[in-house]
Design a protein around this nucleic acid. Structure first.
Length: 612
RNA sequence: GCCGAUGUAGCUCAGUGGUAGAGCACUCGAUUCGUAAUCGAGCGGUCAGGGGUUCAAAUCCCCUCAUCGGCUCCA
């Protein structure tokens, strides 16, 4: 009875001894282990590939990596050889010795071994002395440490080399591409096993896998990469989310609008997007070569703001009209780099829950706070608690932004004030701003611990300027409004990807594409089941009947695999009693409940975002 | 876009130079069944696509496409 958990999901079994995994950022010891392991790996690599040059090799949350410049590309087989070599080094119990040297001394030693990357790294190290860490007397690298005292403290069975990747020197794609080896190292082999188990579990939650299994969305090579298509079940999920937010927005004074999927190039020239993102748009549609030459054509929209701005501009606005909140579930297309695409989290066609608020400067703070409140409300309703707010400000050293310093100051201050007023925990993201303004971004992690932006609020003084927006103030003067761009979900695609992983496919009742499935014990009970389901659908309950004609056990199994929250067995007893035998995914069998009561409770639970 | 890996039936996968396989799904037949898989039969593949090597290619080589892990980018 206790085990209602399906055996193909990943829940931790209570009888398995729990291994606690330390975090690198919180464990000095683990930092030392990973630092030292990365040095051992680098030494092993240079032993096997003498031409390989060593660059940088830090610890990361789940392990470490090291970047090499090697004329011969590493292969998966090489990883095995490197791992073997590492074990050898570890068994030799080499002491790890810290040495302090002067800048000049470091320089001459680097020149002696001819490692130009190290020279660049040396230039970056501020202050003296320079620290060098030696492994025995055969290998050393510039390193701030700290390290273990000896390779003897490492356990080869707690170390694994995980993957190969390309990585640009200094993260700059115009510079040399290096080869990165990712590895992981733990205090004990048990920790490594646990780490691997968690990784497996994460893969089971992967929305690409679950989306396929649950039949929510599909891709097609013929349609094209990064262009998801939503199945009937996925579409139910999507529209439930849409309906929820639409309702919430209407309550908050948003006005719905609809705008086209394409617009003239000139529109995007005015906004500045064309100059900035031309290559990231699907190619222009132009009627003939001459039109093409003059850039007199149309492009698929990659954002909705310029369209909403045109609606704003369609009439003379009074201060009495503001704030004007124009909202649209707008589908946009971005020609993302092929290597960037993945599942639903990064796609080429997606729908933003977009809105643009046109406000007076005096209204800015208040409206901004209201938007943050909406986002928090939405995240709460979705049970997304594991997010971090990021202040995405401009990097003053870069010149990829439009607008004057004054506008930027004002915008960034408005965001700063908002998070302070709310006491919202946040972190800084310098250089993460949009080109027209700073943002407050709500960041979440997927199952594989990659960070994604969902909700966003942006303050913008620049587009109102570029489009020459105005309103008539109380004194009759023409004033410029401020714009707030905002999207609580960010995009429906990404949100759903994240939600699938967050819930591991077990959607809460109100979101579940199918809320209840009726299972007729024999085919003779089908008409009864169909009637009950139809009555439930009339109450806006997403009910369906298992028409397979399978045996009950099989139907239950299928419903469990489909992660349907509620099952109802209908047989002679139920027809007789005008009741339903209820089995929930969360709590197992609940026994017989009269049909009217089931319907009523279901409808109430759905309305309250609660369980049955 | 770059580095690396992968691509066999709708799905999950086996098959390393000699006649394409399994389980599930699907269709049909039998069974009419009470809380996680009834039995049997059948259907289903240009082995991602194209080119090459070979007497012979899913298997070896080249190109393209897609997917995955990273990097870069992300309005």
């Amino acid at each position: 009875m206790s085990n209602v958990v399906s055996n193909n999901t990943s829940e931790v079994q209570s009888d398995v001894k729990k291994v606690v995994l330390p975090k690198t950022s919180e464990s000095e010891h683990l930092k030392r282990i990973r630092h030292t392991t990365s040095h051992v790996m680098a030494m092993a690599v240079q032993k096997l590939f003498p031409k390989a040059q060593v660059t940088i090799g830090p610890w990361i949350e789940n392990g470490f990596y090291y970047d090499f410049d090697s004329p011969e590309p590493f292969t998966e087989k090489d990883l095995k050889a490197i791992k073997k070599e590492m074990a050898k080094i570890i068994r030799r119990k080499l002491p790890v010795v810290r040495e302090e040297v002067s800048r000049d001394e470091a320089k001459s030693r680097i020149q002696a071994i001819n490692e130009p990357y190290k020279l660049e790294i040396l230039d970056d190290i501020k202050g003296d002395p320079i620290t060098i860490y030696h492994l025995g007397d055969e290998w050393w690298d510039l390193c701030a440490g700290p390290h273990l005292e000896s390779t003897a403290e490492l356990n080869p069975d707690a170390i694994a080399l995980e993957s190969l990747a390309g990585a640009y020197w200094r993260g700059d794609e115009t510079k040399a591409q290096l080869q990165r080896i990712y590895g992981t190292a733990w205090e004990t082999p048990e920790q490594l096993t646990e780490y691997r188990r968690r990784k497996e579990e994460a893969i089971r939650r992967d929305h690409r896998k679950l989306g396929k299994e649950l039949g929510l969305f599909v891709f097609s090579d013929l349609v094209g990469p990064g262009l998801p298509m939503w199945t009937p079940k996925g579409t139910l999920l999507r529209s439930t989310l849409e309906d929820y937010l639409k309702q919430e927005q209407i309550r908050r004074g948003y006005l719905p609008v609809v705008t086209p999927h394409i617009g003239r190039v000139d529109l995007f020239k005015t906004s500045g997007h064309w100059q900035k993102y031309r290559d990231d748009l699907f190619p222009m549609m132009a009627d003939g070569d001459e039109a093409r030459q003059h850039e007199d054509g149309f492009v698929l929209k990659a954002m909705n703001c310029p369209f909403h701005v045109q609606i704003y501009k369609s009439e003379l606005r009074s201060y009495r009209d503001l704030p004007l909140r124009l909202a649209e579930f707008g589908t946009v297309y971005r020609y993302e780099q092929s290597g960037e695409l993945g599942g639903l989290t990064r796609v080429r066609g997606f729908t933003q829950d977009d809105a643009h608020l046109f406000v007076t400067p005096e209204q800015l703070d208040d409206e901004f706070l209201k938007v943050v409140d909406l986002i928090q409300t939405v995240f709460h309703a979705l049970n997304l608690t594991n997010f971090k707010a990021r202040l995405s400000f401009r990097d003053p050293d870069l010149d990829k932004y439009i607008g004057g310093d004054d506008a930027w100051e004002k915008s960034q201050n408005a965001i700063q004030r908002a998070v302070e007023t709310l006491g919202l925990p946040h972190f800084m993201g310098i250089g993460e701003a949009a080109f027209y303004g700073p943002k407050l971004d709500f960041m979440v992690q997927d199952a594989l611990e990659r960070e994604w932006q969902l909700g966003t609020v942006q303050v913008d003084y620049n587009l109102p300027e570029r489009f020459d927006l105005e309103y008539v103030a109380e004194d009759g003067s023409r004033q410029r409004p401020v714009m707030i761009h905002r999207a609580p979900f960010g995009s429906l695609e990404r949100l759903i990807g994240i939600l699938i992983e967050e819930y591991a496919g077990d959607f809460p009742l109100w979101l579940a594409p199918v809320q209840i499935r009726l299972l007729p014990v024999t085919e003779s009970h089908l008409p009864f089941a169909r009637q009950v389901a139809a009555d439930m659908r009339a109450q806006n309950i997403r009910a369906e009947v298992d028409e397979s004609g399978e045996r009950l056990g099989k139907m239950i199994r299928n419903a469990e695999k489909a992660k349907i929250p509620i099952m109802s067995v209908v047989g002679d007893k139920e027809v007789e009693a005008q009741a339903l035998s209820i089995r929930t995914r969360a709590s197992g069998e609940l026994g017989q409940i009269p049909i009217a009561e089931v319907t009523e409770r279901l409808a109430a639970a759905i309305a309250n975002f609660s369980n049955f």
